[in-house]
């Protein structure tokens, strides 16, 4: 699907080039700039380019799209015939792994990719150069967040289609709406945490290990790889403190319930929101657009 999008984009570009060659003037007229069209246009402008940057990044594609699909195939292949309990219902592990891996892909796209790309952009001075322009910080953040939402939406759609076609795992219509809401809230929360964590990292090299160390253990105790009913109560209590468990729990609910209200957990959304606000407050205090070591 991604390659289809890429191919369409290339076709469109080729057509634009042909049009440019037909027109005798080599200078194309630019319309009014995004900044001239207002804040919303600026956010869309920023998001379009941020999305392009992440779609063209081989790392982001591999980590955010291919890796979750590979894990889904492996987990279902190995454990697909076993069963577990989700919110009181006995379900096949096939059904368990779809929302689990979906939660993982949201964390990877919104948190891991963002931490790595932001610390890279900051350390190479790209963020500083963007801040040297009149663009408001809020536009850069909102644009980045919007691009991330589109990114996770694409990945989630691919995962759900794969689950349906190859494993016959389906969601009821209202439950899909629940998945969409949880995905949106989860993406924004993890993006916010991503900004905060990237503010704690001094160098681009530290980004990758920091991301792995914070994500991996949580996947094991938050119902992503292993049903939480298999965990000790102490581990479950520990997982409850962190946001991954709340994202995955809400997505699991959608896999066993048909109505919208039962397929999304208000408590979990609240916990995610608290994490997002906490991370936002940390950013306001600590986040810097300038490379580490640049003292003011």
């Amino acid at each position: 699907m991604f390659f289809l999008i890429k191919r369409l984009m290339r076709l469109r570009r080729e057509r634009q080039v042909r049009v440019a060659e037909d027109g005798s003037a080599s200078v194309s007229q630019d319309g009014p700039s995004a900044a001239a069209r207002g804040p919303l246009a600026m956010v869309l402008h920023e998001a379009a380019y941020d999305l392009r940057i992440s779609l063209r990044s081989p790392r982001a594609r591999l980590m955010g799209i291919i890796f979750p699909i590979v894990l889904l195939v492996i987990f279902i292949g190995v454990f697909g015939n076993e069963h577990t309990l989700v919110d009181g219902s006995r379900v096949s592990l096939k059904v368990f792994y779809v929302p689990g891996i979906l939660a993982m892909s949201i964390v990877v796209n919104a948190y891991a990719s963002l931490v790595i790309s932001i610390s890279g952009l900051r350390e190479t001075g790209v963020l500083k150069r963007r801040r040297a322009t009149p663009v408001p910080a809020a536009v850069l953040i909102a644009g980045q967040a919007l691009a991330t939402v589109v990114n996770t939406a694409i990945t989630a759609a691919i995962l759900l289609v794969v689950a349906r076609i190859f494993y016959g795992v389906t969601f009821a219509g209202p439950a899909l709406a629940g998945v969409a809401c949880t995905t949106l809230v989860g993406t924004l929360a993890f993006a916010s945490i991503g900004y905060a964590v990237s503010g704690m990292i001094g160098s681009q090299e530290a980004a990758q290990p920091t991301v792995q160390m914070t994500m991996l253990p949580l996947w094991f105790i938050s119902g992503v790889f292993i049903p939480i009913s298999n965990l000790s109560p102490a581990l479950r209590d520990l997982a409850d403190v962190f946001p991954v468990q709340h994202l995955s729990n809400s997505l699991h609910l959608a896999s066993v319930h048909a109505s919208f209200s039962a397929s999304i957990s208000a408590t979990d959304m609240l916990v995610l929101a608290v994490w997002a606000l906490g991370a936002g407050a940390f950013c306001a205090w600590r986040f810097s657009w300038l490379p580490a070591g640049a003292s003011r």
Partner: peptide
Amino acid sequence: SGAEPGLTTRECVALYAGY
């Protein structure tokens, strides 16, 4: 300052023009 990753020369300039 590093390059904007993934963007072409013209896209970089177009991104900044929007600011």
